[in-house]
């Protein structure tokens, strides 16, 4: 059992969602964990699988920004200054059972990796004394908290909530689990302040340089492999044939899908 990783060039929302759906099929075919690391061009807001379209249209802070709907759950994310990943595992994989397994595994390994870069982060857990923002009543993912979210302290952070710097959500398919996640590297200045959440570079004393992101992710992937006791296979080239991705992307670009709710 190996960990296969693709580093993809930035793409638009529909192509990224299409590639991730193909990644889930790849994980099933290979019978092991597959990951894709990627960016977005242009800046895009991804909506959670069942977020209301009317709320997205009413959110002035993202007016004019490209929108795509993810197949996974959770809240809206502004992509462009984050590091996005997709991880897919067969349901028979050790992390393919309860949703929290894969969520915690990838966030805990990122916590460890951030620690090696001098960033102290924690996996947020709800305490009885803390009333977390309810799951469905905040539009943006980074305004929500759920168990296992990766948080750091910093100016403006409520003591019990911290600043969320990494969140993930899943689509549980018939035979595989597809998890999307986003590590916020820095504030996105292409959107209004209400949609622009502080990232590592804004929260860490001395900042978090862009040049450190790839080494961080490389360390994270090694930590994921270490947790599984397996080896990393870094695949060369882009994940999947571009034409195949573009054909599949039509569904994710359709009005029917984007405004399904």
């Amino acid at each position: 059992m190996t960990l296969h990783v693709w580093w993809d060039e930035p793409a638009d929302g529909p192509c990224n969602m299409a590639a991730d759906e193909l990644l889930a099929a790849e994980a099933f075919d290979r019978g092991t964990i597959c990951m894709r690391i990627y960016g977005w061009q242009p800046v895009t807001v991804s909506l959670g699988g069942f977020q209301r379209g009317v709320e997205a249209r009413a959110e002035q802070s993202i007016a004019g920004v490209a929108i795509v709907r993810r197949p996974s759950g959770g809240g809206a994310i502004v992509h462009g200054s984050d590091l996005t990943y997709a991880a897919a595992v067969p349901k028979t994989h050790p992390w393919g059972g309860r949703p929290q397994l894969l969520y915690d595994a990838l966030h805990e390994t990122m916590r460890q990796s951030l620690g090696a870069f001098g960033v102290e982060a924690a996996l947020w857990r709800p305490a009885e004394t803390v009333v977390a923002p309810a799951a469905g009543d905040r539009f943006f993912c980074f305004d929500r908290r759920s168990s296992g979210d990766l948080v750091v302290g910093g100016p403006g952070a409520a003591d019990d909530l911290g600043h969320k710097v990494m969140g993930s959500a899943q689509r549980r398919l018939a035979a595989t689990v597809l998890q999307h996640g986003s590590l916020l590297v820095r504030r996105n200045l292409d959107v209004a302040p209400a949609a622009s959440h502080p990232g590592l570079d804004d929260l860490i004393g001395g900042g978090f340089p862009a040049a450190a992101v790839r080494p961080l992710v490389t360390a994270w992937i090694a930590a994921v492999a270490g947790a599984l006791g397996t080896e990393v296979v870094e695949e060369s080239g882009r994940f999947q044939d571009e034409q195949l991705v573009r054909e599949k992307a039509r569904e994710f670009a359709s009005e029917r899908w984007t405004w399904r709710r």
Partner: peptide, 11 residues
């Protein structure tokens, strides 16, 4: 049908 929890959408 589909069901959504805090972390996941499942068929």
């Amino acid at each position: 049908g589909e069901i959504e929890s805090v972390k996941a959408v499942s068929d």
